[in-house]
Every structure is written in C-alpha cells, then in structure tokens.
Nucleic acid binder design. Sequence first.
DNA 1: GCTTGACTTAGAGTTTGCTCCAAGTTGTAA
DNA 2: TTACAACTTGGAGCAAACTCTAAGTCAAGC
Lengths: 131, 131
Amino acid sequence: MTIKEISEKFNISADTLRYYEKEGLIQDVPRVSGRRDYGQKEIDLISFVICMRSAGLPIEVLKEYLSLVRQGDKTIKKRFDMLVNQREILKTKIDEMNAAFDKLNYKINSYNSMMLKAEKKLQKANTTNSF
Amino acid sequence: MTIKEISEKFNISADTLRYYEKEGLIQDVPRVSGRRDYGQKEIDLISFVICMRSAGLPIEVLKEYLSLVRQGDKTIKKRFDMLVNQREILKTKIDEMNAAFDKLNYKINSYNSMMLKAEKKLQKANTTNSF
DNA sequence: GCTTGACTTAGAGTTTGCTCCAAGTTGTAA
DNA sequence: TTACAACTTGGAGCAAACTCTAAGTCAAGC
C-alpha cells in the first residue's frame, strides 16, 4: 500500500507517517523505486501506534517499547512493566476525563433548564456557581 | 489564599497559575500589597479550569467561554452550544482512550501468560501480532 | 537597619508533535 | 517526450502549554 492509501485508511496525514518513520517508530518500511510500500506487518504496527497515540502515549515511550520488542525475548519483563505503567497513567487520564464529562453534563443540564424556564422568568437555575 | 497555597491545594505550579491569569482565564485576582490573594470565587474558577484542562479542553476555548459568562445572560445559548460541542469532542477522546486501554490490557494479559508459561517452554502466546 | 525568602513582572526558552517547504525523482498518460 | 501528479528527502516553521530567568518588591525576623 502507498503512503496515500495508508493515510486515507487511518485518517492520518502522510507527513505524520513520514514523521513517525523518521522518529524510528515505524522502521524498515519497504520501498519500490524509492516510494514507500507498506505491507501487513507495517499496517499492524501503524494501527497499534495510532491507537496508542490517540490515547496520548508519548512517541518516546512507544519508541522505547518497540525498540525493546526488536531486542527479543529477554526484554519481555521490561516491556510488561512499561505497559502496566502506561495503563496506570491512562487509567488516571480516563478518570479525569470522565470527571470533566460529568461536570460538563451537569452544566449543560443546568443551562437547558435555565433556557426552558427563561420566558417564565424562573431563573432559579445556576445553583452551585456562576459560570 | 496565597499562590503557594493554591498551587499546593490543586497540585499545579505557581507559574501555571500566573500563566492562566496572563492568558485571561482567571481575571481580577485581588492583591494584598502586590501579592495575589485568592478568594472563594477564584478558587471555584480555578477548580473548574483545572478540571477542564485535565480533560484537554484548550485554553482558548475556556477563555472564550469565560468571556461569554462575563457578558451576561444574552450569551447563554452560545455558551450552551459551546459546552455541548466540547462534550462531544471529549466523548470521542474518552472512547479512543478506552479502546487503547482495552488493547493495553489485552497485551498485558498476553505478556502475563507468556511469562507464566515461559519456563514450561510453552510460548504459544503472542497470538495476534508480534509487538 | 539588614537579610532573607517568597513573591512580583515581562519576556525568553523549552517540549511535543506535528506541518510545511524546497528541490529533486519517478511512473503514467497525452 | 514532455507534462504532470505523486512521491522523495532534509530541514525549517509552527502551535499549545507550559517553564524558566532576571531584575525588582515587600514583610518578617534577627
């Protein structure tokens, strides 16, 4: 697959794909007369990287993890620890986002009843604070 | 409360608090002989800003929202729309993070059984792909 | 009165992750 | 065979959100 096809498949810019390669995230991409020609192996890797990046895992962390993978079985324990660590960080972020989501929801509902009751001059909403 | 107390209360740097103020997120902070002296109003606002920032809402968006709040009731519909919009964006991000979390979990479990069965030379794990 | 430490400001610097640019190459279609 | 679009590379540029620096101010304790 060409860079354009990959870029469309994953909804990511070709520049970003080249950048990931430059950074060493996606290595040894085959070329056909100079052009990148992604195979299944690369597609699986890109899919993983994009998923993790979308969750905010830093490029540096992914780079180190993939470097460990390339170093073979002796790095399994270290990889495991990395993943567990990243899972914990991710869990914290998800909790924070859910908290913000709930707060947003609460505010939206307040605004909603505020607007519904507006013409009746019943602006009793705005209960906890003013923003 | 002093900037240091706020900084410790919210586990955020004093520099960041000053930065938010410079950016217009937290306005009209009272001073006592030049020093910031945060009151309940400011604390509520900071708490809101930090919650939203931790969920990734951009400073620009928060700034505009808070500016609308200051402009009074005529901006309620616009604020409402902003919040609904941000909620949608946040929902998408939460979904992405949950997907990554599941993937991480799956990998961690794979590594786990890999390591458990290692000495038995039963490295049949690593089922779907190699990283 | 003097030192100290925590503040103040304006503004410069840093980090992360792209995103764009310029100049050159290549396969295809007219 | 020449025009064209889509690639290639190295490197510069950019946006967001801090983070740090320098030079100055102030209240408290000695």
